[in-house]
């Protein structure tokens, strides 16, 4: 549990996994990462990076830091709206399922030809809304929950098997107790030495350049 307090020269990304032979500089730069030791420091740094006008940047933290969304200027996600519509879809789908299978004699094509079967149960109406509600409720929740999770991952661009940031050994501490500011090389304001000096001025304990194995993925 020792923490490196010194600044590692950025020309030496050595020690990163996957670099065994050859000149590491042959790979394009992904960006610079700056390490901070506390949530408070990364919060202040994030404010400064946003004020400096960077656009392709991020903070990586072991847990969500309170106030960082505001400091970074992240817009609220549209996830709740998606979930609402997914839930409504579930409600309607469950109603149609029940009305079709139990209260109609329609034939429809749903991968195979299927026909409804009107059941008359103890003289209840064919469309027995009160009896249909539990299933409508459950399907609403099911659709909403699936949309919540898969929508969140899709918008986050996950799952992915690799990311340039994982080339840095230092970055492994991001899931433990270190807080990082990442500025990507594709940012129009990115200029290696100037950005590096800027990050150091924010009080980073270390600034390191991260290389990208495959730039094609990020070209968009």
């Amino acid at each position: 549990m020792t923490s490196t307090q010194t600044t590692i020269p950025t020309q030496a990304p050595g020690g990163a996994p996957g670099i065994d032979t050859g000149d590491p500089d042959l790979r394009p730069a992904y960006g610079l990462i700056a390490e901070f030791e506390s949530p408070g420091e990364v919060l202040k740094a994030a404010e400064e990076v946003r004020k400096a006008g960077y656009r392709w940047w991020d903070c990586c933290t072991p847990f969500p830091v309170h106030g960082l969304d505001g400091a970074m200027g992240i817009k609220p996600t549209i996830l709740p709206i998606m979930v609402f519509f997914a839930g409504m879809t579930g409600t309607i789908a469950a109603f149609i399922l029940q009305a079709f299978t139990n209260a109609s004699s329609l034939s429809i094509w749903a991968l195979v030809w299927v026909t409804g079967y009107p059941y008359l149960i103890s003289g209840k109406p064919m469309i027995s809304m009160p009896a249909f509600i539990p299933v409508m409720f459950e399907v609403t929740i099911l659709f909403s929950a699936l949309t919540t999770v898969f929508g969140m991952f899709t918008m986050n661009g996950l799952p992915r098997l690799h990311h340039p940031l994982f080339n840095s050994d230092r970055f492994r501490k991001v899931t433990d107790d270190r807080f990082f500011v990442v500025i990507e090389a594709r940012d129009p304001k990115y200029f290696r030495s100037r950005t590096e000096a800027f990050l150091e001025s924010l009080g980073a304990t270390a600034v390191e350049e991260v290389r990208d194995d495959d730039m094609t993925e990020e070209m968009d």
Partner: peptide
């Protein structure tokens, strides 16, 4: 781990998703 890297842009959606799941699971 699905390539999770603690990005705050991810945490933002993640936390919202977690809150939504909690809100959905409660009546469930």
């Amino acid at each position: 781990a699905l390539g999770w890297r603690g990005s705050n842009r991810h945490w933002h959606r993640y936390e919202r998703a977690y809150l939504l799941l909690a809100a959905l699971s409660t009546p469930l």
